[in-house]
Nucleic acid binder design. Structure first.
Length: 371
RNA sequence: GCGGUAUUGGUGAAGUGGUAACACGGUAGAUUGUGGCUCUAUUAUGCGUGGGUUCGAUUCCCACAUACCGCC
């Protein structure tokens, strides 16, 4: 399904662009941040919480839902939206390719597909590009991802070349069986830190004509300079009139740097994972609510934040919940962290509109200290 | 009153005549297409108190304190 992506404005100081795309849920603004809800739930928060936090598109995962409860169950429920009661916006399903990186060994990656060892019971599983698309079709997500391999960092040029070529062949196979007319399908650019492979991967993937393009294999252990190069190497070969999605990136500074380089969409587990580890984003850096210094701090996480958490709860109280291992801590922190990133992209959009993104970046980075 | 046994950090505890394991907890840190798991660093200048022996004692000896168990 064509997302009718439109560039509303191009920055005149960098590659950033302000855009919109359309689905049956309405018009969606980019740059955008998507919270991750791997197992048909954004951990610890309700769909009402997500709405309050200005979440729009959310992510779910093919691999996890394939194992539990199984795509047929979700299909019987009427699709993911009905199953999880999420009607605020579209759902994007990741293809399961990232699990190749985290669960499979290189020898288990073959032309036909990938042999996984289930993280639940160790059972051997076999996932192919066709199977991934078929599962995503049944899940009924609005945007499906092409099945890819996300190699670790670093690997040799030779390994990466083989991997990228195979990922392209997998993309072709997946596209061939993609039959869900109401579902968009995105291709994934790989190639690691190698400029020639990123270029090749981007050009060849674009030839297949997907509804959007993502840059994968980023933030897998490389340094910042390399990370930003990976984006720079791919962007010039992606079409202007299609969304660009940088997979798995959600550090606030990385989001800004990504937008400056021409990225439209981001997703990341960071806001919710950090919340489970008692961390909160603030404009002056990440803070750890477990820290003793907050035990008598009766101010909100951020004084001017409009999220549910900051409007009603103090750092001292949240710290108390964290120390007592109370579940509410994770919920309150998740809500704040998600809102922090949705607000960040709102500010980014405003900055693109005003052609002040570079100074916004400089200002943000100077205040956002790595503790 | 007499004998015996014990006393190590916030907790449970190991241990040795050469300067205090381990676990939990505490304090910090990591976390980027999610296992809430996990990982890393750090946390007793001191082994009930006071003496003695020794180059050196938490360790051996004596006394005392405290706790528990026997006996009158």
């Amino acid at each position: 399904m064509d997302l009718k992506f439109e560039v509303i404005k191009k920055s005149n100081e960098c590659n950033a662009r302000l855009g919109t795309f359309k689905t049956k849920y309405g018009t969606h603004k980019t740059p955008m941040f998507m919270p991750v809800g791997t197992q048909a739930t954004v951990k610890n928060v309700s769909v009402e919480d997500l709405k309050d936090a200005h979440a729009d598109v959310i992510l779910s995962n093919t691999y996890h839902l394939w194992l539990r409860p199984g795509e047929d169950i979700v299909n019987m429920a009427g699709g993911l939206h009905n199953f999880m009661n999420y009607h605020n916006g579209p759902i994007l399903t990741d293809c399961g390719g990232f699990q190749v990186f985290s669960l499979a060994k290189p020898k288990d990656i073959e032309e036909e597909g990938v042999t996984f060892k289930s993280h639940l019971d160790g059972k051997k599983l076999f996932l192919t590009p066709e199977k991934s698309i078929e599962i995503q079709n049944k899940l009924g997500s609005d945007i499906a991802m092409s099945f890819d391999e996300c190699p670790p960092y670093p690997v040799t040029h030779e390994y990466m070349k083989n991997s990228v070529e195979r990922t392209l062949r997998w993309a072709k196979r997946g596209k061939k069986v993609h039959s869900n007319k109401g579902q968009a399908l995105f291709g994934i650019v790989q190639g690691g830190e190698f400029e020639d492979l990123r270029k090749w991967s981007a050009e060849e993937t674009v030839k297949l004509d997907f509804d959007g393009y993502s840059i994968g294999g980023v933030s897998v252990g490389e340094d910042n300079e390399t990370k930003y190069k990976m984006i720079d190497y791919a962007i010039p070969y992606l079409p202007e009139n299609k969304v660009r999605y940088l997979m798995g990136v959600g550090d606030p500074v990385d989001i800004i740097e990504g937008v400056i380089r021409g990225v439209d969409i981001f997703d990341c587990v960071l806001p919710t994972r950090l919340a489970r580890h008692a961390n909160a984003f603030t404009r002056t850096g990440k803070i750890n609510l477990r820290n003793k210094k907050y035990s008598d701090d009766f101010t909100p996480i951020e004084e001017n934040c409009d999220c549910y958490t900051c409007k009603g709860y103090t750092k001292a109280y949240i710290r108390h919940l964290v120390v007592c291992d109370e579940m509410l801590a994770a919920r309150l922190l998740s809500i704040h962290n998600i809102r922090f990133l949705t607000k960040l992209v709102e500010d980014i959009r405003e900055s693109i509109k005003n052609d002040t993104l570079i100074s916004f970046r400089n200002d943000f980075v100077s205040k956002y200290k790595k503790n």
